[in-house]
């Protein structure tokens, strides 16, 4: 067997391995995103319940509640792209956060068993979402690394793979709570 044939086989093998690793990374991202989607949906399902039980008391935050309801219906639309889902999730996170802060101003609400239960469930779902987000970000990082690093970057550009976005932490979550503001 000639040397050139062996070299050819080796090159083909390397190409196949590179191709397969890229495809598996892409599929991992998609696979984890579908799990993210499931937990996000769990949270969307809690929203009508939450809005129904707090709207009686929250006269001043009507616009906030309407906004959340509207965001939810947007998120439930079919055929959203991954990027749109990510940005909607960020908006809903911050809106729900403001509602939870507002609940603190209503002693009747804080004592309401139904609201308390919803609050805890929401907290639990938030933890699941956070875990799913972190898993998604890691898989996207692996994927992005692969399509930008040599030698897989050449293969990726041939396959027309593009960088994907990671979930960003909502600005409101990152900020420290300003205690003074809460009391003013």
């Amino acid at each position: 067997m000639s040397v050139s044939l062996i070299i050819l086989i080796v090159i083909a093998l390397v190409l196949v391995l590179m191709y397969n690793s890229l495809v598996s990374k892409k599929n991992q991202v998609e696979n984890i995103f579908s799990s993210v989607d499931t937990v996000l949906k769990k949270r969307y399902d809690l929203i009508p319940n939450l809005v129904a039980s707090v709207s009686k008391y929250m006269e001043h935050e009507k616009s906030l509640l309407e906004k959340v309801t509207q965001l939810r219906s947007e998120a439930n639309k079919p055929n959203l792209s991954d990027g749109e889902k990510i940005s909607l999730d960020a908006k809903i996170s911050s809106a729900l956060g403001s509602i939870m802060v507002a609940v603190e101003n209503y002693p009747e609400l804080k004592a309401n068993e139904n609201v308390m239960h919803l609050q805890h469930t929401l907290h639990e779902v938030e933890e699941q979402i956070s875990a799913a987000r972190r898993a998604y970000n890691q898989s996207v990082t692996d994927y992005n690394n692969a399509i930008e690093m040599i030698p897989t970057s050449f293969m990726a550009s041939l396959m027309n793979y593009k960088r994907k976005d990671v979930f960003e932490i909502v600005e409101a979550e990152r900020k420290n709570v300003n205690v003074k503001e809460l009391f003013s």
Binding site: I32, S35, E127, S130, A131, A135
Partner: peptide, 10 residues
Amino acid sequence: DQIEARYILS
């Protein structure tokens, strides 16, 4: 489970 591992290990 990738997600569950991160759910446990907050």
